[in-house]
Amino acid sequence: MSHNEKLLNDDCHNSRRGFLKKSVAATAIALAPNVIVKAAEDGLDEKAAGYFEKTNIKLTINDIDYSLSIEPRTTLLDLLREQLHLTGSKKGCDYGQCGACTVHVDGKRVLSCLSLAVMQEGKHITTIEGLAKGDDLHPMQQAFIDHDGFQCGYCTPGQIMSAVACVREGHANSPEEVRQYMSGNICRCGAYNNIVDAIIEVKRKGGTI
């Protein structure tokens, strides 16, 4: 192994998760029953960590109240997709660089891949699945269909959630302004022109969205 290689490998082990685990273990020694502290001392720390790493939270998603027990390292996006099967919110990068995971938290657009689920206690979350009222599409959803604001459709839920917020924020007054305020949502198929048209139409029609 080269020197550089060793450095890289060592780096690997100072991961965020490693830090979290150690912190949890430290707290554990103060608070936990003896049996678990003993287990940690016996080299079963990984297994022990598993017991501690669930936290109870309550939050509301698409007007439904949830009471959940989750690991603190779980992102809001992974909670939605992997545990609640709300797969409308998409994972495109996992680093907040593409916008595919955009949801509304208390009415504001938020990147769910950069949000830890445990930090959403008491929050009201709206995902693409909660935007339509029954069979009635939200005007932005209909406008995306009418203007062909997508091709593969993968970035679309994030685009629509951003677009709704963009109008609500008052940032949809011109195509140029829309382009600026929608630049956090990548569309690799390149439906950008049509997305602008959809948003401008919804804005022009007015009404509460």
Partner: peptide, 21 residues
């Protein structure tokens, strides 16, 4: 004509590879 997949896509119901239960 609009895309026939439109409604599934804009409502988040369209299932991509990792999304099948």
């Amino acid at each position: 004509n609009n895309r026939v997949t439109g409604k599934a896509v804009v409502t988040g119901k369209a299932k991509y590879a990792a999304e099948h239960e």
